[in-house]
Nucleic acid binder design. Structure first.
Lengths: 147, 147
DNA sequence: CCCTCAGATGCAACAACTTGCAAGAGCGAG
DNA sequence: CTCGCTCTTGCAAGTTGTTGCATCTGAGGG
């Protein structure tokens, strides 16, 4: 089964119609294998199919996010990043100083979610968390610079 | 000392100039004592001083956020919410279904931050976290509805 | 009390989305 | 194969927030 057919099947299972616009957006995110900004997705899609409008891409991204096929994350104060969700759930540590993004394994986050559930009865939906902060390199660097 | 004078003093300590625009933004957030959207802040400020431009309010909010005088939080997929930071750090549980926002004590979050520090050497900056999920009421409600 | 200048502001253009509406297109029924 | 319902899409206008630039002003130095 080709990648396109898989995508089509996934769409159907999620209750969407199979349209070229949705397939293009999905393929762009799958092949990127990384975070893509909405703008990048638009660029990728329109490179193959210039007739697809921006609003369609935005709406498709929203629909795929609602169906849990892709994740939507806000890194810092910039654009929104989208990512194909085939892998295990994972999270990110974003350094506010150097901007580097580290992957964070799910375990620590699961423990956190369990605590929220135990203490507040709140069923946290932490499918894709972005935690701001200062990475090791930067905190070392500023110590040196501070002296 | 009046509230305005306190705000002025706070501004000076943070290395800002004391201007009427900044004071108005600060007063709006202090008196609200709750989250305000950027739009609400603009409305409040311009009610007292119609000449202040939107961009000034946005820039002021950004500057105050950078100086850690106010917090900036993204609830769900809507606008950005600002809040005066006089109280202890606190966090929020946002129900994706009913939209209710619960306060979350700092303790659970501190534990989470410590884990990130221990396992990844990452100094997380969780001054104002918003956790999406489903609240107790809604998860009960959907159980009943589902039967 | 006046000068100076970096920081603050207003304005308008720009960027990043969102939405209303009419036209188009999957896909299940017949 | 055709019909028709409903989901999608394109277009254009509307929000929400950001940025470049010229002007203005708070506040320390003279």
């Amino acid at each position: 089964m080709t990648s396109r057919e898989e995508s089509a099947e996934t769409l159907r299972r999620a209750g969407h119609r199979v349209t070229s616009a949705k397939l293009l957006v999905m393929e762009a995110l799958r092949h990127a294998g990384d975070h893509l900004s909405a703008t990048s997705v638009i660029y990728q899609v329109r490179r193959d199919a210039p007739h697809v409008s921006e609003s369609t891409v935005y709406r498709t991204l929203g629909a795929l996010r609602d169906s849990r096929l892709i994740s939507e994350t806000t890194f810092g104060h910039g654009e929104v990043a989208y990512e194909w969700l085939e892998k295990r759930p994972h999270h990110h540590l974003v350094c506010s100083q150097c901007g580097v993004v580290y992957e964070l394994s799910d375990e620590v986050v699961i423990g956190f979610a369990k605590q929220l559930s135990d203490t507040h009865g709140f069923d946290a939906d932490l499918q894709h968390l972005a935690v701001p902060g200062i990475c090791l390199d930067c905190s070392r660097g500023s110590e040196v610079a501070g002296k």
